[in-house]
Simulated assay, not measured.
Amino acid sequence: MDIAKLSTVLSQAQVKQQASLSVMRMMMDTGKVQAGDMLEMLDESVSAPDASHPNLGGKIDIQA
């Protein structure tokens, strides 16, 4: 077995794994930011009802 070839293959595999982990970390960070933004928007929508339609959404008709 060629030691140099094996070393190269292992090194390339390690680089691929590191790149994959870096992309995964970036996606997780992006997801955290987006989730935080979404929660902030939900809090704003609940705390500030629409002034032009104060009764909108106050009742739901569930009769068939």
Rank of each mutant, 00 (worst) to 15 (best):
Q34Y: 06
A51D: 13
Q12F: 11
M38T: 00
M38Y: 00
V9E: 15
V46N: 05
Q34G: 00
P49C: 00
S22Q: 13
V46G: 01
L42H: 00
A48M: 12
L10H: 04
S45T: 10
S7M: 11
Q14E: 04
V33F: 07
Q17M: 03
D2K: 04
K32I: 03
D2N: 14
M1R: 05
K59H: 15
P49H: 02
Q34P: 00
E44N: 01
L42R: 05
V9D: 12
I60E: 15
A51R: 04
Q14D: 07
L6P: 01
L42W: 11
E40C: 07
P49V: 08
T8K: 11
S47W: 02
S7Y: 07
S45D: 08
R25G: 02
G58Q: 15
M26R: 00
K59I: 15
I62V: 09
V15Y: 14
T30P: 01
L56I: 06
M41A: 05
A19Q: 12
Q14A: 01
S47H: 09
V23Q: 13
D37M: 13
S11N: 11
A64E: 08
V33G: 01
M24Q: 13
A64L: 14
H53D: 08
A13P: 00
Q12H: 10
A4Y: 08
L21K: 10
E40F: 09
A19P: 04
Q18M: 09
M28G: 01
E40A: 08
S11E: 06
L21V: 07
R25N: 11
H53F: 10
L56Y: 08
M41T: 01
M28K: 02
M28N: 07
V46S: 03
M1V: 11
